[in-house]
Design a protein around this nucleic acid. Structure first.
Lengths: 248, 248
DNA sequence: CGTATTATTGACCACTCTCAAAAAACGTGG
DNA sequence: CCACGTTTTTTGAGAGTGGTCAATAATACG
């Protein structure tokens, strides 16, 4: 999984060159990118420890229990993180999109399996080079702490959802959040493509496929959402759906 | 809520003096303490931004939505963090004990309410002084990132528990984890005091009080645990209880 | 002790799960 | 492009885990 040039992406900072002499493959994340705000000199040290990685859809990036050798941040695509019980029960703990991090570990091994849901591009940082990088660029450590804090908030929201919300409230919460993250507009009825199937949604919301399907049908029948097909979503009444999500 | 001297605690580092001239109130956390590993000079800067805070049992430390002005680390006592839905449904997102942090915020307001479960002593750091402190003592930022990572792992475990485990598996997981954290021994049958009631356990495990009570009775009838009274626990067969917790 | 709170137990109910089948969508090769 | 098989989604009927409502028992506290 070597360094690749993604020259399909236009660069806003064409002064940045990686050590191999290849024009740096920028993501289009702007100020939310991990590397945003670095000077050219800092960026050189940054790019020196960075690896670009690509993964096929449905491919496993790492498994629960593997030694935690890399930290990842997504530039293009989507990832699911999940944990398994020995009898096969699965819980998806997060869906991640461009700008999100994964692979942080407390004990040296990954606590979850990471799997690409779409063709994936990610920046990858070897764990053993991170200490030096943080010493050089303390701001990166701050950004990482901020990202971890946000992930913790999201995890707490998910705990509230799983512990205390009904199936209808769970799906409403999920769709409202996803709609926002995927750029759905409250005014324009442009459908948003859902990158995951009913099974993944079920394993994220602590439900079964059948209950997810029935609940989709219920929201559709009540005019809250519109489904051009099973994997495309329009939220017709965002305010009402958000109220349901909060249990109102 | 001013600075207090907790001279009931014996000090291992009696060379440390806070700016007011009072002998520093050490916690007995050893190498796990936030301040562990600091030199005397560093410790001076550390203590300069630190406030000591005490809280009565059942008192609220801060509420969900309050401006996030402080970061806390527990020295003595126990804390619960919870979120509420508008109709009163409550989800406890964490029980915290000495050495644990709380109060990190992504958006400037607390995402949960924090309440003392026991007489509480905590070190408190004003958010506006943290940047300077991190610049002086970068190791503290590393420790905080490590703590946030651990909390994130714990949150993911709780997500798995709430999404995919049965009531029996949930209580078994909870008791095994609590037993370890409160210093229960696999050999000695010394009961451990549970600092929370059935209602708190229910709101942590996503169950009702009645189901928690019935499940306690079930584990007791099966000889896995022993309850001298409702708030004291002995785990009789730790291995078997741990197997139940993992769904085996 | 008497009172209030908390925990336990019981009977019944409902939300979601399980099992099953039908329908729709997708992919592949002819 | 269509026929076919596979996979995914939807829908249906029935069952079960855990919830609700209610009463009793135990505990804590003045």
């Amino acid at each position: 999984m070597g360094t690749l040039a993604f020259d399909v992406f236009t660069s806003e900072r064409d002064d940045c060159v990686d050590p191999a002499g290849v024009t740096c493959q920028h993501c289009d994340l702007g100020t939310t990118a991990f590397c945003a705000g670095l000077t050219t000199g800092q960026f050189g040290r940054f790019i020196a420890v960075l690896e670009q990685a690509t993964f096929e859809p449905q491919s496993t990036i790492f498994r629960e229990g593997d030694p935690a050798q890399h930290l990842y941040t997504i530039t293009v695509g989507a990832v699911k993180l999940y944990k398994l019980l020995s009898d096969g029960r699965r819980q998806i703990v997060a869906f991640l999109f461009p700008g999100d991090f994964f692979g942080l570990s407390g004990n040296g091994t990954y606590a979850y399996t990471a799997e690409a849901m779409l063709p994936l591009m990610a920046c990858r940082f070897p764990r053993r080079k991170m200490d030096q990088l943080f010493k050089d660029l303390p701001m990166l450590e701050k950004k990482l702490l901020g990202a971890a804090t946000q992930e913790l908030d999201a995890a707490h929201d998910q705990i509230l959802l799983l512990g205390r919300k009904t199936a209808r409230e769970r799906l409403a919460s999920f769709l409202v959040g996803l709609w926002r993250r995927l750029g759905g507009s409250d005014d324009h009825p442009a459908p948003v493509a859902l990158p995951m199937g009913r099974g993944d949604i079920a394993d994220f919301l602590g439900l079964t496929i059948e209950t997810v399907s029935r609940t989709f049908t219920g929201l559709r029948r009540d005019g809250l959402i519109f489904l051009p097909d099973a994997s495309h979503l329009v939220i017709r009444r965002p305010k009402d759906l958000a109220r349901i999500a909060e249990g109102l």
